[in-house]
Design a protein around this nucleic acid. Structure first.
Lengths: 135, 135
DNA sequence: CTTGATTTGTACGTATGTATT
DNA sequence: AAATACATACGTACAAATCAA
């Protein structure tokens, strides 16, 4: 329940509620969220605050939005296995805008940066890759 | 230059300008951004739009904010090396709120999820870890 | 195919609170 | 204590994409 006297920001409280519903499985991958307007009415807060709550979860990788469509719980993508040989290094970070569009990565999903022992650098979408060390 | 007739959202245009200045090295790690108010005046847009631009870059891991202080370009943290043995699997994702606070991870930084061949699962802050496969 | 309703996106303004300088 | 800077919260209006009749 969102409580104005709790001291925490309304949008953070709503984000927590929705996050809990997602992790508890009440909102399953692919499920549609209620509209921003409806969420605002039912939780007695402005659409602005609702949007900020949703944005938090989008950036955590839990939700996807697109204009005109309802917001949905993100579905796990099939993961390809990327093999790591001895000496390969890996970092992770958020993609640049350009990388996001090139690789088709949604907001809220990081990338792997793989530096092969030979020096070559590869970029892999984090949401659809699993690295496996094989030595 | 931000152009209202360009068709793209003002905050996206400003985010692009700032991102370019960061990647070009004109805004170096640790550097302070101008205040939201000043950016709004100089680019002729509302503070609201400026804040949305900055939020984009925070979620890309390029900026850090904290209340009362000016916004800064994020500095690279020292990276610890985490060794991967044959059979270890790695995924990457954004941390949950709880994980972010436990591990002291700023907004916009992903985590490594390392599944050891034995079955144990480790979490490593992406911004301060490099994985190295050793076989 | 067209229309109208729904839903998210952009943009502004205002006011107030809280933390830092 | 005062000024500065970011945070929260509301309201309004309109645009653009999608959906449903």
């Amino acid at each position: 329940m969102v409580d104005r006297n709790e001291g925490r920001a309304l949008h953070r409280q709503l984000a927590d509620l929705l996050r809990d519903q997602i992790t508890a499985g009440q909102l399953r991958p692919g499920a549609y969220l209620p509209s921003e307007t409806y969420l605002g009415q039912t939780h007695d807060m402005s659409r602005t605050a609702v949007r900020r709550a949703i944005d938090l979860l989008v950036n955590e990788g839990l939700l996807t939005k697109s204009r005109g469509q309802r917001t949905r719980v993100r579905e796990q993508r099939e993961r390809r296995v990327v093999l790591l040989a001895a000496g390969d290094d890996v970092e992770t970070r958020m993609p640049t805008e350009a990388e996001r569009h090139q690789l088709g990565i949604p907001i809220g999903e990081p990338v792997f940066v793989v530096r092969r022992a030979g020096g070559r650098v590869e970029l892999h979408a984090g949401s659809s890759s699993t690295l496996r060390a094989i030595g």
